[in-house]
Amino acid sequence: MTEPVSRRALLGTVAAGAGGLLLAGCDRVNRSPAARALLQSAEQAHLASQRLLGGQALAPEFTRADLSPDFRANGNHQANGNPDWVRHRESGFADWRLRLDGLVLRPLELSLEALRALPQRRQITRHDCVEGWSAIGEWAGPQLGTILRAATLLPAARYLVFHCADSFGPVPYYESIDLIDAFHPQTILALAMNGQPLPVRHGAPARLRVERQLGYKQAKYVMRIEARATLAGLYGGKGGYWEDRKDYAWYAGI
């Protein structure tokens, strides 16, 4: 060896110092709005590339043999903070009505009975939580497209917003999808899970299934669907509770 040990020690010190600076630097960059905006522009690349590659491709579907023995519930496990929902739950959702309004020609109020009378799509799919876990379940309910066609979207409509009964705080949960996902064949309003009426902890009486995105997009305890031209003006303007609250990506295909 020709290199003196002291030089090695120096290099070690420099490396350790650089490591410390890197940590502090990354946290600082992480807080910089300009840097965040640059990093977050990748979301558009995810959306564009996945739409380009996938088009209207279906999410993989499984068989009953693949079902998770115990499907972990994501998000809230009840909506007890909402008196209307509590009242409906106590009466078995007999008087519950799903409201579809906003930029539609004919606003609708649909009972569970009316939703069940529509053609039902049954699909066994994998639910992926943003945290990393996955569970496989069987969902059944009308395609969202069927309901939207019944109401007829106005030409200006670009997004569907799902207003929910559950909440993590003072603000009720909400999520949104665009029309490509809204009319995707696997996008359903699930009324049943694993052959049973949708359990309370999974979002009774109706939850969204948008199968090519992560768990936080699968709005539970849906009370109202609103057709909008833009997400601006909806709470924080980013299109969803976690998007507004914690800066999660609106497009959750990855």
């Binding site: 590659l53 996938g54 491709a57 993989p60």
Partner: peptide
């Protein structure tokens, strides 16, 4: 791990 790509590239 991407559910979107699972549809596109199963």
């Amino acid at each position: 791990m991407s559910p979107g790509l699972n549809a596109a590239l199963p």
